[in-house]
Design a protein around this nucleic acid. Structure first.
Lengths: 237, 237
DNA sequence: TGATATATTATTGTTAACAATATTTAACTC
DNA sequence: GAGTTAAATATTGTTAACAATAATATATCA
């Protein structure tokens, strides 16, 4: 994998970008697996690609390392992280705990204005689904979870959830090779909102947990397939 | 507050320190309120105090900003953070959710070897309390929570809890002026371990929540005192 | 004096050159 | 050819000088 493939424009005219731009672009390249796990991220190369100084790249790489998308080793630079299956499990387990806490807050809040906002989110999602627009539906379904966190009004939980959401695609990627349809099922989102509106924390939390487990199981199922493939290979020797 | 007071040795012979050393020392100075919230952290000054290059200080300051102990503003440098009461509330609420999740894992695990390790932690704590050694007891009581997270084996939850624990003293400091006895009550720790051993998640979680709420209330009680003091002042005008 | 503009200084931000380290290549031995 | 050492190269890490910005002090004028 050559790193210059992450620039979609002609590389002869490097676009001068700010630090945040570079960050977003590299992050996107990682999540689109144009930069697969393990890829070495060389500073001068990246600096040339984005038309920035090496110092900028350096800062971006440490920021990416903070969010675990990149691993930095002393004197050996940075590469795209290859999170373990354990990390994936931990990430999902933590996510269930955090989203449960968020729902608890929302139920206790019992704010009608808030419920209106949630309904709007659902409608936008549904429209995208009905149009069959998957490119649009995926980000919207992720956004549903983010907005739930924001509306709960706990900045710490919100940060934590965003951290998890940022890391999740790479974990999936590392063990499946592609970020296949892990979009949320819209009717479950609707069920969650209904339960919150009804003030039923247990139900809302239950649906959310099933919802998240569903996504997680899609992944671990395929991981097991991978493992059995490997077992078959070993036995055929 | 002069920054050079954070070096306990004679400042004439600056001790050469590694980046992590500097980080720890500044962090400790913040948590000991030798550097109170709002204190400007000037790069050259800090570099001289610790006998390191400005670049080192720069990296340390961004790391501290990542853990919210320090705030960085473009072209205006870094200062010790002054977290809001809301942030304090959010931090405690998030902590309850996370420690509950940790307990759930531990209960489900039901590992006798693990329970032995928890008992050892309790004993060490109890010894320190019986000796009346508060200087020792406080870190041990914090460590109990950290170890619980570690033993649960979820690296994400462990990181999140450590993040919260790191930020908590500054929040308390910012609204009380001193990190007064917020040590945990040891018998509650014992109750938590007992309930985990008995496989009673609800009970363990309940005690933990009460335990954390107790610490939180100590703080908000005093904050309200502050507020009423202010109200009295305003009325006396 | 008090307010505003200007110069001075202090502080943060950036960069290009250098140093240190790791990686690759080539040369050599067996 | 496999393995080992040594040179050459590539890559990361550090630094000191410079640039840009903000904060402070001084001067000017009503």
């Amino acid at each position: 994998m050559r790193i210059d493939t992450i620039e979609t424009r002609a590389p002869t005219a490097p676009v001068s970008s700010t630090e945040d731009d570079v960050l977003r672009q590299i992050e996107q390249a990682v999540l689109d697996h144009r930069l697969p796990p393990g890829t070495k991220l060389k500073e001068v190369q990246l600096a040339e690609v984005f038309g920035v100084k090496r110092g900028t790249i350096r800062k971006v790489l440490t920021r990416l390392a903070n969010s675990r998308l990149v691993v930095q080793l002393p004197n050996r630079g940075a590469s795209v992280a290859s999170p373990s299956v354990e990390e994936g499990r931990d990430l999902f387990a933590a996510r269930r705990a955090i989203e449960s806490a968020i729902i608890e807050i929302l139920v206790r809040r019992n704010d009608p204005a808030l419920m209106g906002q949630l309904r709007t989110l659902l409608e936008n999602e549904q429209k995208a689904y009905q149009l069959g627009d998957h490119k649009l539906a995926l980000p919207l379904s992720v956004d549903f979870h983010r907005q739930l966190a924001k509306l709960a009004g706990n900045s710490v939980l919100e940060e934590f959830l965003n951290d998890i959401i940022r890391r999740t695609p790479l974990v999936i990627l590392s063990h499946l090779g592609s970020d296949s349809e892990n979009a949320c099922r819209n009717h479950e989102h609707e069920g969650i909102v209904d339960a919150i509106a009804a003030g039923d924390f247990n139900k809302a939390s239950l649906i959310m947990n099933e919802h998240l487990l569903h996504i997680e199981n899609q992944i671990s199922d395929k991981t097991e397939e991978h493992q059995s493939d490997l077992a078959a290979l070993l036995l055929s020797n």
